[in-house]
């Protein structure tokens, strides 16, 4: 991860290098797709197993509105669940950090909560909240907060106790030490979790939609499956992958802006 960032940073020294760095992923994606296209045709793979990339593309272009609407809906569910999960995850880490007794009491419960399969949990949530955007966001939230809590706590524990003592010698209160020391120090670890949580939140939203809904990428996937519309399945996979990568890149971008000091600690 950090290696690739360093690589990109090296490249961006010259303008030409910067353009290459930006275009490079697209270039490789194009090469990859072309290779798949050639392979599918060369080995005469049946579309039932793997349709040609060009067929998938034209499948998306045939009804772009449906895919866009699905994308938007799933994005909203994911974003809502992800944001709620991240905030809750950090707040719980702070609570556990501040009151160790609460941590001993409830942290095991947190872990247990994650052993309940989302599928089982999802049915209950849809029963409670109906077939709403909110219900899907709740499922997203449910599977994304734990890594945030765990990594934030990990980040807190990386704080040098001498640093805490220094702040206390300045007469700092607990809240000041939290804001000026613990929270910033946990940011590198927090972002590792946020990247993971963004992917998990998307899974949560898609699975949530399987419990019944009218729009969303999960719905498109189910419909395509029932209709044995292989191109439709692959088209939805591609759109979901784009959403997943987009969310991940967004979090990575924020990470590079916010955690500018990197792993130095």
């Amino acid at each position: 991860m950090s290696g690739s960032i360093a690589y990109a940073a090296n490249l961006s020294v010259t303008p030409a290098g910067r353009i290459y760095a930006a275009v490079k992923p697209i270039l490789w994606l194009a090469v990859g797709l072309f290779a798949v296209e050639v392979l599918v045709m060369a080995f005469e793979i049946r579309p039932y197993y793997l349709p040609r990339p060009s067929a998938i593309a034209s499948g998306i272009m045939a009804t772009p509105g449906a895919y866009l609407a699905g994308l938007w809906r799933t994005f909203l569910e994911t974003a809502l669940g992800f944001l709620a999960g991240s905030v809750f995850g950090v707040v719980m880490a702070v609570v556990f950090h501040r009151w160790l007794a609460l941590k001993e009491l409830f942290f095991p419960l947190f872990i247990v909560s994650q052993t309940i399969p989302v599928i089982a949990f999802g049915a209950v949530v849809v029963l409670w909240f109906g077939n709403t955007l909110f219900a899907k966001a709740v499922i997203s939230f449910y599977i994304s907060f734990l890594p945030v809590t765990v990594n934030t706590l990990l980040g807190f524990s990386s704080v040098d106790p001498r640093q805490v003592q220094l702040m206390r010698s300045f007469g700092a209160r607990d809240g000041q030490i939290l804001r000026r020391l613990y929270l910033p120090a946990a940011l590198p670890q927090l972002f590792v979790a946020l990247k993971l949580a963004s992917s998990l939140a998307l899974v949560g939203a898609i699975v949530g939609e399987w419990f019944g809904d009218t729009t969303g990428l999960g719905v498109l996937l189910l419909q395509a499956m029932y209709n044995e519309n292989v191109v439709g399945i692959w088209a939805t996979i591609v759109v979901s992958a784009c959403l997943g990568m987009g969310l991940y890149s967004l979090v990575s971008f924020a990470e590079r802006k916010i955690v500018f000091w990197g792993g130095e600690q």
Partner: peptide
Amino acid sequence: LGKVSFMPQRDLLLPW
């Protein structure tokens, strides 16, 4: 606490 200005053995600067 808060009455003495203390410089510990390491500089302990905040990297951010």
